[in-house]
Each structure stands twice: as C-alpha cells, then as structure tokens.
Simulated scan of single mutants.
Amino acid sequence: MDLTRPIAPDPYALLPRVPSFTLVSDDVADGAPLADQHSDAGDVSPHLRWEDIPAGTRSFVVNCFDPDAPTPAGYWHWTVFDLPATITTLATGAGQPDGARLPLPALQARHDGGGAGYTGAAPPPGDRAHRYVFAVHALDVESLGLTPEATPTAVAFNTLFHTIGRAVLTPTFQR
C-alpha cells in the first residue's frame, strides 16, 4: 500500500456553502479514533444527535463517507434519507441492515460494499488513519423521491439541490 497518497479534500468543501448546525455523539468525537464496534469488527452505527437546525427543514439525510479510501471516489459507509424533520437523534445501532431501528418513512441506500445499513470503518491494514465523515443534511423537502435501490452517490447528488444546512462530525480509524 502506498502510504504517500495525498490526503483527499473535505468532501463538502467544493459544494455550495450552507449554514452549519450542531452534531454531537455519545459514541464518536471529531478527530478522535472510532471504537472497534464502529469498524467492520462490529458494524454498529454510532449515536448521532443534532440541534439548532435551520428554519424550513422538512427532512434529513444522514451519511457516513470515507474520503481517504483507496479509490478515486472514496467509500460510502451509510446513507439514510427521507428522515422526518421531527427526528433529531439516531440511537447507537440505528443503522441495522433491516432498517428496523429507523423511524418511518426513513430509508437506507446500500453502502459501497453492496449491503444495506451501516458498514463499519475498514481501512487497509498499514494505511494511514482514515477520516469517517458523518454528515447530517437538513433538506427543504419531505422526500427525495428515491428508493432504497438508489446509490449513495445518487442520494448525495439529489441532496445537493435541497440542502439548507449541514452538520459534520469526523472521527478517524486506522488498523
């Protein structure tokens, strides 16, 4: 593994700027290492809670992206969309493959490994620490009109046109 690869930019830096709001977690902290349960050793999505959301928010998209994955497109670990605006917390383990711990009508797109739900951090052994960007996007629509068969990239693309605010929390993981 070539450990001299340049560090990928913030995946949201080149998108239109939107107001920020607060994202916190009982399980992860900005810049701190993820616990093993949030890696592929456990595949347990972390607790996330957000507040100070923008006026006019009608739904949320929550996703986790590794911009440091050794691919040209990074790696999507989790994408939840059509999350009602009344929901401002996802419990630890909400990203189960069957979606049973998500409130209706929220849906999950498949992660880049092809499965449903949250898939944990899994950087190649010996690679530098990877960033796992957990983002909550406040949207001005109740639904993106997509199905669970939509790719995470398709969800992100459609999210772009409706985002009125974004909160980000970026822990790391290394083997």
Rank of each mutant, 00 (worst) to 15 (best):
Met1Asp: 15
Asp2Ser: 10
Thr4Pro: 10
Thr4Asp: 14
Arg5Ala: 15
Pro6Tyr: 00
Ile7Tyr: 03
Ala8His: 06
Ala8Ile: 12
Pro9His: 11
Pro9Glu: 11
Pro11Ala: 01
Pro11His: 07
Tyr12Glu: 11
Leu14Lys: 15
Leu14Trp: 10
Val18Arg: 10
Pro19Ile: 05
Asp26Lys: 14
Asp26Trp: 01
Val28Leu: 11
Ala29His: 15
Asp30Gly: 09
Asp30Tyr: 08
Gly31Ala: 09
Ala32Lys: 11
Ala32Met: 11
Pro33Leu: 04
Gln37Trp: 03
Gln37Leu: 15
His38Cys: 07
His38Ala: 08
Gly42Ile: 03
Val44His: 06
Ser45Lys: 02
Ser45Gln: 06
Pro46Phe: 04
Pro46Ala: 10
His47Ala: 05
Leu48His: 05
Trp50Asp: 01
Trp50Gln: 02
Glu51Tyr: 14
Glu51Gln: 15
Glu51His: 14
Ile53Asp: 12
Ile53Trp: 13
Ile53Leu: 15
Phe60Gly: 02
Val61Tyr: 04
Val62Lys: 02
Pro67Asn: 09
Pro67Val: 12
Asp68Arg: 08
Ala69Arg: 12
Thr71Cys: 10
Thr71Met: 13
Pro72Cys: 08
Tyr75Ile: 11
Trp76Thr: 06
His77Ala: 15
His77Arg: 15
Val80His: 02
Val80Gln: 01
Phe81Trp: 12
Asp82Gly: 05
Leu83Tyr: 12
Pro84Val: 10
Pro84Gly: 10
Thr86Gly: 10
Thr88Lys: 13
Thr88Gln: 14
Thr88Trp: 11
Thr89Leu: 10
Leu90Cys: 09
Gly93Arg: 03
Gly95Phe: 01
Pro97Lys: 08
Arg101Ser: 12
Leu102Val: 03
Pro103Val: 06
Pro103Gln: 08
Leu104Ala: 15
Leu107His: 11
Leu107Tyr: 03
Gln108Lys: 07
Ala109Gly: 07
Ala109Leu: 02
His111Gln: 14
Gly114Lys: 08
Ala116Ile: 04
Gly117Gln: 00
Tyr118Gln: 03
Gly120Arg: 00
Ala121Gln: 09
Ala122Cys: 13
Pro123Cys: 09
Pro123Ile: 10
Gly126Met: 06
Asp127Thr: 14
Arg128Ser: 13
Arg128Trp: 00
Arg128Gly: 14
Ala129Glu: 04
Ala129Asp: 05
His130Ala: 09
Arg131Cys: 02
Phe134Tyr: 15
Phe134Glu: 06
Ala135Trp: 00
Val136Ile: 06
Val136Asp: 02
Val136Met: 02
Ala138Glu: 00
Leu139Pro: 01
Val141Met: 01
Glu142Phe: 04
Leu144Tyr: 02
Leu144His: 00
Thr147Trp: 01
Thr147Gln: 10
Thr147Arg: 08
Pro148Ile: 05
Ala150Glu: 05
Ala154Lys: 12
Ala156Arg: 05
Phe157Arg: 11
Phe157Val: 14
Thr159Pro: 02
Phe161Cys: 04
Phe161Ser: 10
Thr163Tyr: 03
Ile164Gly: 01
Ile164Asp: 01
Ile164Gln: 02
Gly165Gln: 03
Arg166Phe: 03
Leu169Arg: 00
Thr172Asn: 01
Phe173Trp: 12
Gln174Cys: 06
Gln174Gly: 08
